[in-house]
């Protein structure tokens, strides 16, 4: 059986598995601060979710590839990254099976069924999160208050419906809380400090391109500046640029999800378009829809549009001539 020539964006390194592994290793390293923050703020349940998600992801990929008689590629660490990112998108009180189901969906439905590594058209962890949210909305509500340094959540917090920074009307969070991660939310998206450390690492290692995070965050900043007019002030509560930038899944989305090179445009212009698009849709969903958070859907929608963006922004290969339409001559 002939394997088709792989047409993929550069860099083209010779040993495919090793190069993927190197990139994935960098991503895992970049995610370590966030993992630490998740355990710090959400204790044992966060650790459990991360372990279950990663093991499920590896198992799903291994089993699928064995059943379909394909070479097993778990050593390229991509399933580890997917599992970790999925766990980061779960609330601390999510049941373990939610993490397992999410990982299976991400690896099998969204990635492997479409051809495996490098061939999915949607970010697996994010699409899985969206499916989980649409399926078990109650279980995916971020209902746990952070309990810094404590292994187990204080009992009272679990039963109460907790307001996250983006729940309309919630205004009681300081900038430092938002930045450090001392806020309710999904276990991996709360600590912007940890996330930014990882993001900068990935930029330095050239694993991600600066265009998407910058255009994404920039568009959101500009949109909110136009809407609220304030960069930051305590009185304005949630209605200022900095608060909005540091809330919800925006930071993790802009640095770790939208930048997935498989599901984002190939060219520089394309990446900028994607960043702006994500920012616009995030703004619209956050402000006009009943969902408190729109980052996942904004990115997923741009994933869907990415092939179209590529169509319009990629340069023609050298020497390529567009076939002339014979009908036009026949008409004359």
């Amino acid at each position: 059986m002939q394997k088709k020539l792989i047409v993929s964006p550069g860099p083209h390194l010779h040993n495919h598995a090793v190069s993927t592994q190197r990139i994935m290793l960098d991503v895992v390293i970049a995610l370590l601060p966030t993992a630490a923050a998740a355990v710090w703020f959400f204790g044992g349940s966060a650790l459990m979710l991360m372990i279950v998600a990663v093991i499920s992801a590896i198992a799903a990929e291994y089993v699928y590839q064995k059943l379909t008689h394909q070479p097993v590629t778990v050593s390229d660490m991509s399933s580890v990254v997917t599992g970790l990112l999925l766990a980061f998108n779960l609330p601390a009180n999510a049941p373990w099976w939610l993490a397992a189901v999410g990982s299976f969906l991400a690896i099998i439905l969204i990635k492997q069924l479409f051809g495996g590594i490098g061939q999915n058209f949607m970010n697996p962890a994010l699409a899985a999160r969206a499916i989980l949210m649409l399926s078990w909305t109650g279980l995916m509500a971020a209902n746990v208050l952070p309990h810094a340094g404590q292994w187990v959540a204080p009992l009272a917090a679990d039963a109460v419906s907790v307001a996250t920074p983006l729940t309309h009307g919630a205004e009681g969070f300081t900038l430092w809380q938002l930045f450090s991660g001392d806020v309710p939310g999904m276990i991996g998206e709360t600590s912007k400090l940890a996330l930014l450390l990882g993001g900068v690492y990935l930029l330095i290692r050239k694993v991600i391109d600066w265009r998407i995070p910058v255009s994404f965050l920039g568009t959101v900043a500009i949109a909110y500046f136009i809407q609220t007019g304030t960069l930051y002030s305590v009185e304005s509560g949630a209605h200022n640029v900095l608060y909005q930038l540091l809330s919800g899944g925006l930071i993790i989305g802009a640095f770790f999800m939208a930048t997935d090179y498989v599901t984002s445009p190939i060219t520089g212009i394309g990446k900028l378009i994607m960043g702006v698009g994500c920012g616009l849709f995030l703004f619209v969903i956050r402000e006009f829809s009943s969902y408190p958070e729109g980052c996942s859907f904004a990115i997923l929608f741009l994933n869907v549009l990415t092939p179209l963006i590529d169509r319009f922004t990629t340069k023609k290969p050298f020497g390529f001539e567009k076939p002339t339409a014979p009908a036009k001559e026949a008409k004359a």
């Binding site: 439905l109 949607m122 996942s296 904004a298």
Partner: peptide, 11 residues
């Protein structure tokens, strides 16, 4: 999967 993305506009 495309429909999942469109669900973002639901509300």
């Amino acid at each position: 999967l495309m429909a999942v993305a469109f669900q973002g506009f639901a509300g």
